[in-house]
Amino acid sequence: MGTINVNGKELEVDEEGYLANINDWEPGVAEVMAKEDGLELTDEHWDIINFLRDYYEEYQIAPAVRVLTKAVGKKLGKDKGNSKYLYGLFPYGPGKQACRYAGLPKPTGCV
């Protein structure tokens, strides 16, 4: 277990960098994690991060990439519901990376 520093608070993360406690999340978490990855978060990134948080709130799981892609297409438009677009935003994988920024656990079935 390590920690990340977000706005002066030390938050616990697991060995893969996912937040240990989902309730610790605040937007600053995504910003700190993105900065470590050398990524600048845009509105397009936030659309996906917020989408994931809503999805988790409703279903209590982080969706598999396939499901994420379809659901994003349905909610945010077909031009965004494809893996090319999502990988463009999150090069380490929309499931893993975006979920990590959103404070969710790693998607079930993601290795």
Binding site: E58, Y59, Q60, I61, P63, A64, V67
Partner: peptide, 14 residues
Amino acid sequence: MKNFMPTYRTLGDY
């Protein structure tokens, strides 16, 4: 404990 009842509702999406 985690309430996984809502998760069943996503099975259609899967």
